[in-house]
Simulated scan of single mutants.
Amino acid sequence: MSRSRKPDWLKTAPPSGERFTDIKRSLRERDLHTVCEEANCPNMGECWSGESGPGTATFMLMGDRCSRGCNFCDVETGGMEALDKEEPANVADAVADIGLDYVVLTSVDRDDLPDQGAGHFAETIREIKRRDSDILVECLIPDFRGEPDLVRKIIDAEPDVLAHNIETVDRLQWPVRDRRAGYEQSLSVLRQASRESDIFTKTSLMLGVGEYAHEVYQTLSDLRQVSTDIVTFGQYLQPSRSHLEVSEYVHPDVFDTWQRVAEEEFDFQYCASGPMVRSSYRAGELFVESQLA
């Protein structure tokens, strides 16, 4: 079923428009990467254009090659390069040039570095805030192997939202994720952020990788036990034949049900849920809307 015809609800228009072009130009001039491009996100045009709310772009720090090899992810693995010391300033300059009011920072895993890149990540947050303290910064961080001192570096940089994706239910952590990741390890990151700060915490799950409904329900319960504020659900799409196969194309009605369960039964601050939703999908718009509410 992995390469079977996708249902109509998974079709999107190709990215276009003046703002999309301007953002791409600014990124190329500074040799910056976005997870939007590297992971072939289907919502890139909508998020970059800001047509339905505040524009959002997700910058990917520390290069475009990851030290891990998750079976769902389209980012290249191995061949790690030295960190670009100018990247934090270049990202901050790009944010100002593009005129973003909400920016998402994420990164590849850098298990090869002594601090796994936590310091570099934190410096980028600070550079953006130095230029304009009103810009909202969401950081979607690796697990840093669950090491509290490294997670604390991110907390101390004071982002507005700290996100870490648990990706799937406990039973499916492998084969979905790299063996160095793990369910309890991810929960520990979210728990620490909630206990040690007032920063909003956020996570994301993919559906369609073989999970059962009761497992998703348990995952929501576990996430609330560690005081996670925000959760998103999206459909897993196989990037290539060498990646994990799609087990099921989940109907939009099921995503609507999980949104109601998350918000009404488990009292998440908000839940974005739909086949095309990704962890940073319309992140700025959703965050602002939740605060206004």
Score class of each variant (00 low, 15 high):
158 E>P: 02
14 P>S: 07
184 E>Q: 09
156 D>A: 14
170 D>K: 13
178 D>W: 01
193 A>R: 10
138 E>R: 09
29 E>H: 06
159 P>I: 10
273 S>R: 04
157 A>P: 02
121 F>T: 00
105 L>N: 05
20 F>H: 15
195 R>I: 11
117 G>I: 08
29 E>G: 01
85 K>C: 04
125 I>Q: 08
7 P>D: 09
291 Q>K: 15
27 L>P: 09
284 G>K: 03
257 T>L: 13
285 E>G: 14
8 D>R: 10
223 L>M: 13
31 D>F: 05
130 R>M: 10
159 P>N: 11
54 P>Q: 07
229 D>G: 08
138 E>L: 12
198 D>R: 14
146 G>Y: 04
195 R>G: 00
9 W>G: 06
34 T>I: 07
85 K>Y: 11
293 A>I: 12
200 F>W: 15
222 D>Q: 10
178 D>E: 09
69 G>I: 00
190 L>K: 06
131 R>T: 08
121 F>G: 01
243 H>D: 06
171 R>Y: 00
109 D>F: 07
250 V>K: 04
38 E>N: 11
181 A>C: 09
258 W>S: 00
174 W>I: 03
134 D>E: 14
50 G>Y: 08
50 G>C: 10
92 A>S: 12
250 V>A: 02
152 R>I: 05
249 Y>G: 01
260 R>A: 10
260 R>K: 12
290 S>M: 15
289 E>M: 07
250 V>F: 05
257 T>P: 00
281 Y>V: 02
61 L>K: 12
175 P>M: 02
195 R>H: 06
110 R>C: 11
258 W>I: 01
80 M>L: 15
220 L>A: 03
70 C>V: 04
25 R>S: 10
214 H>V: 04
65 R>H: 15
168 T>E: 00
85 K>S: 14
252 P>T: 00
164 H>G: 11
8 D>Q: 08
193 A>M: 05
62 M>Q: 15
30 R>Q: 10
18 E>T: 05
233 F>H: 03
109 D>E: 12
266 F>G: 04
255 F>V: 03
204 S>T: 07
157 A>W: 03
155 I>Y: 04
43 N>T: 06
236 Y>P: 00
211 E>H: 03
26 S>H: 10
152 R>C: 02
36 C>H: 03
248 E>F: 06
28 R>I: 04
237 L>N: 11
75 V>N: 05
108 V>Q: 01
71 N>A: 11
245 E>A: 12
244 L>K: 03
124 T>V: 06
175 P>L: 04
77 T>H: 15
198 D>H: 12
53 G>V: 04
90 N>M: 13
231 V>N: 00
147 E>H: 14
116 Q>E: 13
180 R>I: 01
41 C>V: 06
265 E>C: 03
30 R>W: 04
242 S>N: 14
121 F>H: 02
273 S>K: 06
184 E>S: 04
184 E>D: 13
86 E>Q: 15
133 S>H: 14
265 E>M: 09
35 V>N: 01
219 T>K: 00
99 G>M: 11
79 G>D: 10
167 E>W: 03
246 V>T: 12
147 E>G: 00
251 H>T: 03
141 I>L: 08
187 L>K: 03
63 G>M: 09
290 S>H: 14
139 C>L: 02
202 K>T: 10
249 Y>E: 02
255 F>A: 01
199 I>R: 03
287 F>D: 06
245 E>F: 01
152 R>W: 02
186 S>E: 00
157 A>C: 07
88 P>T: 09
54 P>K: 07
152 R>A: 15
36 C>E: 13
37 E>L: 08
